[in-house]
Write a protein that binds this DNA or RNA. Sequence first.
DNA 1: GCCTCGAACTATACGGCGGAAAGTTTTCGC
DNA 2: GCGAAAACTTTCCGCCGTATAGTTCGAGGC
Lengths: 205, 205
Amino acid sequence: MADGYHHGNLRAAVLARAAEVIEREGPYAFSLRSLAADLGVSHTAPRHHFGSREGVLNALATEGYTELANRLRANREAGGGFLESGVEYVRFAAEHPAHFQVMFAPSLLDEDDSELSAARAAAFGELTSGVESMAEEGRPVQDAAGGVVAGWAIVHGIATLALTGNLDSSGVRALLGDADLLTITRRSAGLLFGATGAFPETARE
Amino acid sequence: MADGYHHGNLRAAVLARAAEVIEREGPYAFSLRSLAADLGVSHTAPRHHFGSREGVLNALATEGYTELANRLRANREAGGGFLESGVEYVRFAAEHPAHFQVMFAPSLLDEDDSELSAARAAAFGELTSGVESMAEEGRPVQDAAGGVVAGWAIVHGIATLALTGNLDSSGVRALLGDADLLTITRRSAGLLFGATGAFPETARE
DNA sequence: GCCTCGAACTATACGGCGGAAAGTTTTCGC
DNA sequence: GCGAAAACTTTCCGCCGTATAGTTCGAGGC
């Protein structure tokens, strides 16, 4: 099925190979022509499935948001708190760096794509629903809205800094030793959420 | 001086124009040829000053790290605490989005460039020196190392989310209203640092 | 069992791109 | 004012994304 004139599974093969290339060399090195050559098809074959280069990146981002939403939902259904949702967010970024990069590079995407918008909305819905479940658990929440943004920002910051190599710099390593990424995440985010998963009462004078 | 065969100030003109284009359309859209056409020079003229397209981006990143270091130093010398350093970090990202993007896009840069490395090291030195000054102020610091990383992550996360348009999404706006970016930063980072600039004692059961 | 029809893929062509090499113009040190 | 270096141009190359027209394949109807 995979031999001959028809590739058989070109769409999936393009997405998988694109993720590899982007993970290794970044989104700007990703080219449809070299990708097609690697897969043994003509350079216009991917266009049939994705329309354009941007279409491939849109599909990659959509795939990423869907996977992220699945992970966050699984965490919530397993009783994981907001802190563990954050850890899952960082884990996703570490395991799918290409997807993560493209998901947060709006200049590479067609933001009018409805599939992308839907997948993103679903993922962000899962992200914010964590705080509601926290309130249900009776945790003390002083500033829920600020806390959600702070929580998102801190895990997004850790993910982004890690993916850009900034957590491996000598300065940071001098502070943190050789702790692994998820340990760093729990330690740093724990300062915000508190060890129990609640937001701390803001320290005052 | 700016007319005739020699442009007179091509290096600075290229950097300024590159920042404009990248701010508007992202780093992928930035092309030496269209840039040179806009400035009225041949498409190989910038190459004389920067060596390559990557060289322009390296210069932009170096410029950005230098400016960021200056701002952080000025804040420290003016007696601003760690929280205000974070606010300054976000302000820099908002005012120089192109520089910020390029600074944190290692796949666009030549990381072996010594000027870039020096400028980056200087900026990150300023960033971490904030926590030392905090200790000198007698603030209670439970986990200084984790706090520095958490502080960096939260402001970097806010900056990145803002620059990718994720703080303007309907979900976030429903939480935060129409608060401006620096207010959001103080509110969210304040949950981590505490209103006084210190790290909170971690909440426990 | 054949035939059609649509989906999957190829071939070719075009302009814009970054880069290399060689040549031209200007500025500046002396 | 002159020689050398700095600033810039011209020309060429190969790769890129995209558009258009054509080719191959396989599945469903009969």
